[in-house]
């Protein structure tokens, strides 16, 4: 469904991605794990068109994305839950959700989806008139996921959804991801929290300084000594029980 072939990208003269290849098949949950500054966010930005790649090929559902603008890419059925949530702080919770469906042609259906979404995440209904910036971090993360779902994406991408959240909220967010997976949603999940990510993912890639150094099924990665040492080792808090 999504394919990256030797993608290179960077900021100014600085190269960050040094040739990345990965793919996501329909219905799969794929995780991309890596430490700080590995280039995970950069990869997602390249896919979304916010940072057009220098070299390589990005393909989604048979369409080349390399030269498309973010708004065109999003319209093809890709949605991103950005790093740090990035909710529209002064707009109300419901306005944030509505904007998630901005590009959709079927605005009537979108309004129905909004209702359903609010049933599913009661917090988004209770706070629907409140400015999004006044929500707690975890609530904002749920809002950001809800906003992305409002696009009815064919591929949902999340950038470190557990970042900065209390363990209880991490559990809740991953609960949502698990439900989405069971409903058949295709997901590309970027995480530093490898333990949590590998529990929900089918497959994974490990990114280090702009290169994929490992890939395999979630089970393989969990058993890999390198991954265990660097990403699952001691000092990493167990937050997914």
């Amino acid at each position: 469904m999504l394919t990256l072939k030797s993608v290179q990208a960077g900021y100014g003269r600085l190269p960050v991605l040094k040739g990345i290849s990965l793919h996501v098949r329909p219905g799969e949950v794929v995780t991309l794990i890596g430490g700080n500054g590995a280039g995970k966010t950069t990869t997602l930005q390249a896919i979304c068109g916010l940072l057009p790649p220098r070299k390589g090929l990005i393909e989604f559902a048979g369409q080349e994305l390399n030269r498309l603008s973010p708004e065109r890419i999003v319209a093809l059925g890709l949605a991103l839950v950005p790093e740090g949530r990035r909710v529209f702080r002064t707009l109300s919770v419901s306005a944030n959700l509505e904007l998630g469906a901005f590009h959709r042609q079927d605005q009537k259906q979108a309004r129905r989806d909004l209702g359903e979404l609010q049933e599913r995440f009661p917090i988004l209904k209770e706070r629907s008139r409140q400015p999004a910036g006044t929500l707690s971090g975890g609530e904002q993360q749920i809002l950001a996921i809800g906003r992305a779902l409002m696009a009815r994406p064919r591929l949902l991408m999340l950038d470190e959804p557990s970042m900065g959240l209390a363990p209880r909220m991490v559990t809740q967010v991953y609960e949502i991801l698990k439900e989405l997976k069971e409903a058949g949603t295709t997901i590309l999940l970027v995480e530093q929290n490898a333990r949590a990510a590998l529990k929900v993912a089918d497959r994974g890639y490990v990114l280090e300084t702009g290169r994929i150094i490992l890939d395999g099924t979630a089970a393989e990665l969990k058993e890999d000594p390198e991954v265990q040492r660097a990403y699952l080792g001691k000092g990493y808090r167990e937050v997914w029980e």
């Binding site: 979304c48 973010p70 990035r86 901005f102 696009a151």
Partner: peptide, 10 residues
């Protein structure tokens, strides 16, 4: 408020 995120909304 946030131009890049707005673009991600299409």
């Amino acid at each position: 408020l946030d131009r890049d995120t707005a673009r991600l909304m299409g």
